[in-house]
Design a protein around this nucleic acid. Structure first.
Lengths: 264, 264
DNA sequence: GAGGAATCGG
DNA sequence: CCGATTCCTC
């Protein structure tokens, strides 16, 4: 048996501002592949050298100025790549690659959706739901072994949030978003790897707001970051982990990295 | 004979952002009185505790949000204070105090005057000239021993700037501004203490733009900061010094402190 | 060039 | 709350 393949997803909230902690993470945890969201940098300014120096020589970027931006950094070869623009609005929210094994990795940053969970008064909420719908159409046609990772900005289950009741009208946990996410999930053989390894009602969070002084005090987290695998890929998953400790690092992202290990 | 009284004036360009270097300066140079301009802070947010801790327990503030703002910090008692609003526009550009000796200190921040030295097209230039005119009217009525200090934003003499010819059309060294400053000076028994101790054509600068990478390279300075004393006060001045080294400190102001010592 | 604030998106 | 950007002033 070969050594397992470690794949990490992390909403980094500006890769340049947080280069220190990303480097620390890569040195300590040594994943084979790192998928980043919210890199907030155009491709020409992406700090590729820092990643190359750590052995991540295969780099696929889809950045834009100021907002959004995704990236895949890998120690193992990436043989193909795509940058979908599902909403044809030039927002850099997806980059996809194929590994030599044939498995694809699709790295996605779903729109946050604004504050008010109402399409009529908040266009951003509408955009979020539309984005999920376009992803669903794409997912229906998928036929290759695929790992979908990223910040999906939805915490679907009661145990995905610190208080189901208090967040029912909060964007990221509203029934209409969860329903949209459920349709996406049902559109293929998707396995939610987080819940595969830590079934509900286990507490599982990946994001804690910057707005509380100490994120650990009331632990008001949400599970916004996900890894979904098509059944063939999920069958090879051996381990899943959420690096909560990164939320306490100096100048942290509000999201922490999540990791799945595959026997490939 | 008593120990001399050391009085410093410094345009600090945000007293909060530069608290470190102000504290260092006070510890090292130990003036009795520090007059600041461009404190850029409302009175309630002024870091008074830091100054009290260093022995500057007598504090007179005239601050405003974001722009301008002046302050007098003193180890010796301040027995009276004024905040003039010469242009009745609520800009915090003056604070004045009286010492127990009877001498007054008037701390002023004259408007910079914008880029174009033409009243017709640049209202800020007009405001600057108007401000000097109002100061002149005030100065004419002055009858008490007075030390006027501050950022007057004018370098009147050829040797007050790095190049008289190249700056003749640059705001701060235009003939019209110099004429206005001359009228102010002539309106009382004012003695320009800088030039009293370092007569022209000696080089005497107090400000170097942030825009050059290394301020020392071409030494493109200007003398924008001044100390003027009425004749009775000037007679007691024993020493004058410009702390140029502060321009090389970490996170410097673009102005450096100037100091006059008095045998009082 | 540098600081501060307002704005936007999170 | 946080980061990035834009605007303004000096």
């Amino acid at each position: 048996m070969t050594t397992p393949l470690k794949i990490v997803s992390w909403n980094i909230n500006s890769v340049r501002f947080r280069l220190d902690i990303v480097e620390t993470f890569l040195r300590d945890m040594a994943p084979d592949i790192l998928c980043l969201q919210e890199t907030k940098v155009v491709d020409q300014d992406f700090p590729t050298d820092s990643f190359r120096a750590l052995g991540y020589t295969h780099i696929m970027l889809h950045g834009q100025k100021m907002h959004h931006g995704v990236a895949i950094l890998s120690k193992v070869p990436l043989v193909e790549d795509d940058r979908f623009d599902w909403q044809a609005n030039q927002e850099a929210r997806h980059v996809g690659v194929r590994l030599e094994s044939g498995m694809r990795i699709e790295n996605v940053y779903v729109p946050a959706g604004g504050d008010v969970p109402d399409r009529a008064v908040n266009p951003k909420f509408g955009q979020k739901l539309d984005f999920l719908e376009r992803m669903t159409q794409w997912s229906q046609g998928l036929t290759v072994p695929t790992l979908l990772v990223g910040d999906l900005n939805i915490a679907p289950l009661e145990s995905d949030v610190w208080s189901h009741k208090q967040l029912l009208k909060t964007v990221s946990h509203t029934p209409v978003e969860v329903a949209a996410m459920d349709r996406l999930k049902a559109s293929n053989s998707w396995v939610d790897l987080g819940r595969h390894f830590f079934p509900a009602p286990a507490r599982l969070h990946t994001w804690w707001s910057y707005r509380s002084v100490d994120w650990t005090v009331n632990d008001r987290g949400r599970r916004l970051d996900h890894m979904w695998a098509t059944a063939d890929v999920a069958a090879k998953a051996t381990r899943h982990h959420v690096y909560e400790e990164c939320r306490s690092w100096l100048k942290p992202s509000d999201h922490v990295p999540i990791m799945t290990e595959f026997a490939i």
